[in-house]
Nucleic acid binder design. Structure first.
Length: 257
DNA sequence: AATCCCCCCAACCGCAGCTCA
DNA sequence: CTGAGCTGCGGTTGGGGGGAT
């Protein structure tokens, strides 16, 4: 048995798209909207398979697409996101408005991979991560909350978030004998507390966030990655966040790696 | 000018996950 | 519950542009 191929190989144009094919596809999608890719070629009168149409539209014809000229900020963000997420190109692209997963993948494979590998050797010589001062914990808590917590959940003002973080640090220092750094613990504690502060008691995303921690410390980088990925893939998050805000958060990550 | 070679990137392919009957 | 169909994702390929010889 096996699956039917996505389209018959006969009577199908392959390879580079012509200007006329582009025009037909654009006109069809303008009139009928995206989706239903399988039936689109027949309806539009294109001798292409649906997959090919989808790819052409998403990677090339979409009106909001930026092409080429990847800025230093974007490049930096790609490197940092790749460090956290690996080859999750669609997730990475989702955080770079106007960029496609294909473009980022190509950019990484042809240029950034080599660049990062070059940096890798230099990084070994860097000193160990410096300790975080309480004031920095406070700043990070505010930044992180600003970037990652959806507006409807931010029931506390940024200044209040900072106070909470400072307080948590002070409390944890007085009776801490664990090998876990209490300041980072406090930082996450504040963030999780904030996320839960929307008053909902129903099992939801904030409980899901807690689940992988179990008895482990929230300081675990693996856990933080899981959490980060969860935030990243959450469709309710605003996509127009400033690159700088995200870069700031990722800088926090860097200091602990 | 002609040929070779390398590299970029658009496009393809196979698979996984989701939806729905 | 199951399987077919569809969509989206990530890995890979190969055409073509451009630099080197």
């Amino acid at each position: 048995m096996g699956r039917k191929p996505c389209c018959s190989k006969e009577d199908i144009n392959r390879g580079a798209w012509t200007a006329e094919e582009d025009r037909i596809l654009k006109a069809y999608i303008k009139a009928n909207g995206e989706g239903r890719w399988r039936s689109l070629p027949k309806k539009a009168g294109l001798k292409r398979c649906g997959k090919s149409c989808r790819l052409r539209w998403l990677n090339y014809l979409r009106p909001d697409i930026k092409r080429g000229n990847i800025t230093c900020e974007e490049e930096d963000l790609i490197i940092r996101l790749h460090k956290l997420l690996g080859n999750k190109w669609s997730l990475i692209a989702g955080r770079l408005p106007g960029r496609t997963d294909n473009e980022i993948k190509n950019y990484w494979n042809t240029y950034l991979k080599k660049k990062v590998q070059g940096q890798h050797q230099a990084k070994r010589c860097q000193p160990a991560a410096k300790e975080l001062a309480p004031e920095l914990v406070r700043t990070k808590a505010i930044r992180c909350a600003t970037v990652f917590i959806p507006p409807q959940h931010t029931t506390k003002e940024p200044a209040m978030i900072g106070e909470l973080a400072t307080e948590k640090v002070a409390n944890s220092r007085s009776n801490d004998h664990s090998p876990i750094d209490p300041r980072e613990d406090a930082w996450w504690d504040v963030l999780v507390g904030l996320d839960k502060s929307n008053g909902s008691t129903a099992p939801g995303r904030d409980l899901d966030l807690m689940r992988p921690w179990g008895s482990e410390s929230p300081c675990s980088h693996y856990t933080r990655r899981e959490m980060f990925e969860d935030w990243m893939s959450d469709a309710t998050l605003p996509f127009d966040m400033e690159l700088k805000s995200l870069a700031d958060f990722l800088n926090c990550e860097d200091e602990w790696l």
